[in-house]
């Protein structure tokens, strides 16, 4: 009679709810790409690759304006490097190509590989700083006590909102353990 029908209905609902639970477990993982997308849109996180610089032909661009740029670097635990911007501050105008230099020294007696990741403040500035050359595009391998100077070439997109009057670009440099290169 009714009991069997109820049991069937119960089992159907059990299956559905079980699927929801498993899907929610997957959802936790789905939050990762979702978060990346949100970060890219809002400029919280930056992708480490050369940016495309559009010619801007055919589109009306706002007039260029002056921006103060500060440069900095942090070396994370485990990497015996010294990373220093040669210039700490420059005045730039949007739309202009700029080159600054970073000095990196390996302070240890062994070969060390590191990877730099750029971080911007304010985060929203990230998407407008178009880098054409940067040591952060690839892992850098250093011989013992080697010092090298790296150029960073970039242009600030003229579409950047004028409310951003100053930008800090700071590289965080990580140790890349041998075997993970």
């Amino acid at each position: 009679m009714g009991a069997q029908r109820t049991q069937l209905a119960n089992q159907r609902m059990l299956a559905k709810l079980g699927v929801i639970a498993i899907a929610m477990f997957g959802f936790a993982y789905a939050l990762i790409p979702l978060y990346r997308v949100v970060c890219e849109v809002t400029g919280i996180n930056q992708v480490v690759k050369a940016d495309e610089v559009e010619s801007g032909a055919g589109t009306e661009l706002p007039p260029p304006f002056a921006v103060t740029m500060d440069f900095d670097a942090s070396v994370q635990a485990g990497l015996p490097w010294e990373v220093r911007p040669v210039t700490r501050t420059v005045q730039v105008r949007t739309g202009e190509f700029i080159r600054v230099d970073y000095d990196i020294t390996n302070r240890s007696d062994r070969e060390v590989t590191g990877q730099a990741i750029p971080r911007y403040l304010p985060g929203a500035a990230g998407e407008y700083v178009k880098k054409l050359d940067c040591f952060c595009f690839r892992q850098q391998r250093f011989k013992p006590h080697e010092t090298r100077r790296f150029p960073v070439v970039f242009v600030i997109d003229r579409r950047m909102p004028a409310s951003i009057a100053s930008i800090t670009l700071s590289y965080t440099v990580f140790d890349v353990p041998a075997g993970r290169t």
Binding site: I20, A21, I22, A23, F25, Y29, L31
Partner: peptide, 14 residues
């Protein structure tokens, strides 16, 4: 609970 306990399980698995 069904909506969020699996999310917790997911994040601690990570």
């Amino acid at each position: 609970i069904i909506a969020v306990m699996p999310v917790l399980a997911g994040v601690v698995t990570m």
